[in-house]
Amino acid sequence: MSLHFTKMHGIGNDFVVLDCRTQPFALAPAQIARIGDRHTGVGFDQLLTIEPARDPSCLFYYGIYNADGSMSGQCGNGVRCVAAWLRRAGVLGTGAARLESPSGAVSVELLADGRVRVDMGEPRFAPGDVPLTLPAADPYALTLDGGRIEFGAVSMGNPHAVVEVADVDAAPLAQIGAALSTNSHFPQSCNVGVVQIVERAHVRLRVQERGVGETLACGTGACAAAAVLRRRAQVDATVAVGLPGGRLEIRWQGPGHTLWMTGPAAFVYEGDWE
């Protein structure tokens, strides 16, 4: 099997992008995991496929697969890379366009400075939408591994738990992430973020993604953290989210409005998997 791919990243969150516009995607989860292995494969956080749209209102569909071969409903850094890939392919111009993700339609805007602005939809906090099998609360609280963890929960097309901490660098993300993401109250598991408020317009974030582990950046995680804190009136409508790989701009006016994410997308190299 010879498979041509493009390696890309969004502030360190890295991807293998496959052009499946004319040839159906046919990789099994075990094959995806082999390509995703950072020692014996190409290595990536997610594999992205670009396919014909199912929704006639959208130009293209993109699929999202984690490094372990499991599927994901949304990927904020990934959609920016998809939009940049389509622009380079000559099928997407500067301005607004509509793409289809596994969790629904997404509007993207290619900016003149090379960044991509994405309408990530309205954050969904209802427990059934996350999904989370606890009565609605903010914060939620669970006793895990002998300790109490308080967190916000939200869906950005995929489930997120957000834990506010005093020092993001010192926070035991691996321990917190393992405890929350595998908890039975999250029937689909979840991504877990630890966030530190620096000031009202600036927060710092680390994210452990389900099926991947800790990543240099997580676009939906940045959206989730900003949404949880904005809902609590702890940050401004526009907030810079600093992640280990770089910075994203998140803008959310609050309930009744969609959330916008702006950030870069970078090409790394082209390759062929044999």
Rank of each mutant, 00 (worst) to 15 (best):
G211M: 06
N158D: 04
K7I: 05
V212C: 01
V130R: 04
R54Q: 15
T40H: 12
L173F: 03
G193K: 04
P255T: 03
D19S: 00
Y61C: 04
N183D: 14
R204H: 08
F151K: 07
S107E: 15
W260A: 11
A170F: 04
V268R: 07
G121Q: 10
R21I: 11
A225E: 03
V241Q: 00
G104E: 12
G43R: 10
R232E: 14
I176H: 02
A89V: 00
E274V: 12
A265M: 03
C20D: 02
F186N: 15
L27H: 02
H160W: 11
L110T: 07
V16E: 03
M8T: 07
V168D: 06
A166D: 09
C58A: 13
V79H: 06
F60V: 06
G43I: 13
D45Y: 05
Y65S: 02
L243F: 05
R200S: 14
P255Q: 03
S184A: 13
P127C: 07
G78T: 08
I35H: 00
G43W: 10
A53M: 12
A225F: 09
D167N: 07
D68S: 03
F15S: 06
A179G: 12
N191C: 14
L134K: 12
I50L: 09
H4M: 04
N183Y: 08
P264S: 02
I176K: 00
G271H: 00
V268H: 12
T22P: 00
L99H: 11
T143K: 02
A89Y: 05
